[in-house]
């Protein structure tokens, strides 16, 4: 009877410590790797790409999520091609400030003059895949903004390993049709099918082509919930 206060105190301590103590090992954060083609054939799409990122990707990101932006140029497997790497703060207010800063960074990327004669898509994908593997987030998505026409510089070799895109969902979005594609759509379809085969052969979790950018936010939410 003298220790009557112990029970309520114990209950209070247990209740308060429960959320802190019972941590979940499963990771629910998302890592999004954005590959932006800056080669000559896709240069006119850069502003549209930034607009899509600001409208569809950034608002849906949650505290703890990571965003990588990698430039696709003639030699994409360079660390310098990493334009932005940002993990959002755990506090929503700070995360919002980070999103605004990243939006400004993307604006400057859109305005920058860049044009390369070659298009090293697999190099950028390999670089992004390495970052994604290192981050080991709960869900990993690679968004490729390009015409998906690979044009390697002479002497450049790119071979995708079997586990290159392990647990990574690859999405080709805002894919631009080239002049040849209009004359023969089968060329375009074959090109995308070829990429699908390569991605899936390299351990990719999923391959998808999204034509309507407004569906991107829903897709990312779907990927997050697994």
């Amino acid at each position: 009877m003298k220790e009557w206060y112990r029970f309520p105190a114990l209950v209070m301590v247990l209740v308060l410590s429960c959320p802190l103590a019972c941590s979940d090992d499963t990771r629910y954060d998302q890592a999004i790797c954005v590959l932006i083609d800056v080669s000559g054939t896709y240069a006119d799409q850069r502003e549209e790409v930034v607009r899509i990122l600001k409208r569809e990707v950034l608002p849906g990101m949650e505290p703890g999520d990571t965003l990588l932006v990698i430039r696709i140029d003639g030699e994409s497997y360079e660390r310098d091609n990493l334009e932005a790497l940002l993990t959002l703060d755990a506090r929503p207010s700070h995360a919002n400030a980070q999103k605004l800063a990243l939006a400004r960074q993307l604006d400057s990327l859109a305005e920058r003059e860049m044009a390369t004669p070659h298009t090293d898509i697999p190099g950028a994908m390999m670089l992004g895949g390495e970052y994604l593997r290192e981050l080991a987030s709960g869900s990993r998505v690679m968004l490729v903004f390009s015409d998906m026409e690979e044009d390697l510089a002479p002497g450049t070799r790119r071979g995708l390993r079997e586990d290159e895109f392990d647990e990574v969902s690859v999405v080709a979005i805002n894919v631009k049709r080239l002049r040849g594609d209009n004359s023969d759509p089968e060329v375009f379809r074959t090109r995308l099918a070829d990429w699908e085969r390569r991605v899936l052969a390299s351990g990719g979790r999923d391959w998808r082509t999204i034509m309507d950018p407004t569906r991107l936010a829903a897709y990312l939410g779907e990927m997050r919930s697994g």
Binding site: C18, T26, Y28, E62, G64, A90
Partner: peptide, 29 residues
């Protein structure tokens, strides 16, 4: 979510949601 780690989850539920629930239950207690 501003007070507790927003990214952490327990059983799929954000810790902030669980903390809010705990706070409400504490009031009832």
């Amino acid at each position: 979510s501003e007070l507790v780690p927003a990214g952490a989850r327990i059983g799929g539920l954000p810790v902030s949601t669980i903390s809010a629930l705990v706070l409400v239950l504490m009031e009832a207690a």
